[in-house]
Design a protein around this nucleic acid. Structure first.
Lengths: 204, 204
DNA sequence: TATAGATATGAACAACTGTTCATATAAGAA
DNA sequence: TTCTTATATGAACAGTTGTTCATATCTATA
């Protein structure tokens, strides 16, 4: 090993630098040379760790989606926790809000949105991990709440969509504001307001 | 004038070709040469109509956002039409659905999403035209509906957000499906289901 | 018909792209 | 120490990028 890389973690450094550059510039503009330069090596050295640029990006995307969506906070099953009704939804909101305002996850979301319409790998990840997991989890929760007569009956999946969509939209707004360095305090309280509105809509 | 361009509308042809390429490839990959080639001229000829690539993109974006959001369908004011309650919301949904599944507007949405996090001009347009107009319009409508005792009282802007977010999320999903050539029939009925759910949530 | 203005062309530019290659250097195993 | 393996380097490649320029050609006006 030469300088720069402190050991065998050059690969990790590449992933770190790549994630930052991809999120800042997007796939195309985050060139192999810029990535290498950020790591402190030449671009040719990158090819000892990855076969091509696409593989770097796929690896970055994989680490991004590996982040748990705030699912396993406790040992209790979703069905069990869902019996808490509004309490469960509140904890979900708190987790989602934390993700939205966390700098690292903010980058995640940026790069996701940037590549969503250009990269099929990202699209597939979004559909399975990001979207379906949340919808599936919430659907299960709403199904339980219906059985427990906490909320009015209906299609659990539809309710999951209705609950999640405004959160997603808020997250997009927050991300857009932060990109331009605008304050997001006004949006901060919107998350709880959404919960209030939603619960008033479905609670029995 | 040489061949290709049938008259003085080369500028329009450039905008048309640009829009298609921008939406397919994004800003970076839609090169000046590709645009020129699509029009049927050399890249140097483009510079007789636009000073640089950025100006082409800005012009495209301007024409995109110039499309009315289905606001002025009739001569009646929003306040007047809002008295229709669910009927008004249904007409909004129909308009939004039409936009979502219209090929041209689909492209609009794609390019918008692609550049949303990379281009400040687009971001500003999104915030003012795309977002605020809809929210403002819907807020006014919900305010009227509250006065008419058609819906429960609350923050009209919050309701507008709750009503619009799922539509936006659906639109994004449809766009993603179409990009990969997947069928969108399953999502098609979701628009009306959202209206049913929402109206049941707020109607008195 | 002569002239002016708009619009076309092709060549060139400097910079950047992803990738490959022969080669050098370092660390660990024999 | 010697040999192997991993990782670094710098140069080179063939394309592509946005932009400029002198020059040619078309159209409309005088």
């Amino acid at each position: 090993m030469q300088e720069s890389g402190s050991g065998n973690n050059t690969k990790k450094l590449i992933l770190k630098a790549s994630m930052e550059l991809f999120s800042e510039l997007g796939y195309k503009a985050a060139s192999v040379r810029k990535i290498a330069s950020k790591v402190g090596i030449r671009e040719s050295a990158l090819y000892n760790h990855f076969t091509n640029k696409e593989e770097i990006f796929t690896a970055v995307a994989a680490t991004l989606f590996a982040t748990p969506t705030s699912a396993k906070q406790s040992e209790l099953s979703i069905a069990e926790r869902a019996k808490g009704g509004k309490k469960f939804l509140f904890s979900f909101i708190v987790g989602y809000k934390l993700m939205t305002f966390d700098a690292k996850n903010e980058r995640l979301f940026r790069i996701l949105m940037i590549e969503l319409l250009q990269n099929k790998t990202i699209r597939d990840s979004f559909k399975s991990e990001f979207h379906n997991n949340n919808i599936k989890m919430l659907s299960e929760a709403f199904f339980v709440m219906m059985q427990e007569d906490l909320i009015r009956s209906g299609d659990p999946k539809l309710m999951a969509m209705e609950f999640l969509s405004p959160l997603f939209y808020l997250r997009l707004q927050v991300t857009l504001m932060k990109v331009d360095g605008e304050p997001t305090t006004a949006l901060s309280t919107q998350f709880e307001k959404h919960l209030e509105f939603f619960w008033e809509s479905v609670a029995i």
